[in-house]
Amino acid sequence: MNKLEAEDIYYLMVLGRAFEYAAKENYMKGNISGFLHLDIGQEGFSVAAIKAFEKGDIFSTYREHIMAMARDIETKAIMAELFGKQTGVSGGKGGSMHLFEPSRFFYGGDAIVGGHIPNAVGCAYARALQGNEDGVMVIFGDGATNGGAFFESLNIAATHKLPLLFLCENNEYAIGTNIKRAAPFREQAKKAEPYMLTYTVDGMDAKAVYETVRKAQIQIQEGHGPVFVEAFTCRYEGHSVSDSNAYRSPQEMNHCKVKDPLEKFKKELQEKWLCSEREIKSIEAKAQKAVDEAVEYAENSPEPELDALFENVFYEERKNVVS
């Protein structure tokens, strides 16, 4: 990571946090509806992991706004999608949970916990067959590691030595159920140990996440087969905006928020890369401006045409009557 890359990561983290707060505000105003899963507290993880996985396909979950931004998908198109507008990433048909951009090799947006992991395995199989060495990264939470799709995927990826990076974001909560009540141990990497190389990392430390994911991708590119990385994070908000987060005490939340990823990475910028206060303020202002513009763009964008209802059900559109 050089200074420019570090500044970019910080910019995306600030952008992500400002985006999530703006999304929350617009949810309260009624501009955004449905389920809205905020990534506040986990920005360092989301940005650094995507940036470190330089090329290759990425499959992620419903908590993916910031990851999409880190994959260079336009902030305003993401906000417009949350608003359900025609100009959204998915034309207003997907919403917050379904952001996809194949031109950026980003298949964000799966809202079935663990359901996208077998898709990533299949994509990794395709890449191996095609001789593509970049590999595939699949991101999921600790909750997904208790389901069958996850275990089937470990088994198949290891059997075929697929170029697949399993990246687990362990924030200890499956909606409101603590990992201690859903699994026999806190470190989910233990589940992958019999199958592949595993690493654990502090997910609140963007630099550490970046370095670990980078190392893992290089190992995959060198032909070591799948690698498992687990990052421990803290989700500041409820599971979604409609979750009041009542199952975590104020003490637990305070403890969890001590290592704020933005504060930590700002120090890195100041101490290692000698960024001045002015440079940092300028990055922060640029991020806030981008979010304000994204909200304005989303507000002013048109609703989808009603004809869109029937579009893209199939590639080859046919009426249900053949003449």
């Binding site: 077998p118 299949g122 990794a124 799709a149 198949i156 059997t159």
Partner: peptide, 22 residues
């Protein structure tokens, strides 16, 4: 491709293969 007895993965992997260009 001979797969394990894991139907969720047979279809789930096929979806990913199709995304990947197969």
């Amino acid at each position: 491709i001979d797969t394990p007895i894991a139907e969720l993965s047979i279809v789930g992997n096929a979806v990913g293969m199709a995304i990947g260009g197969l």
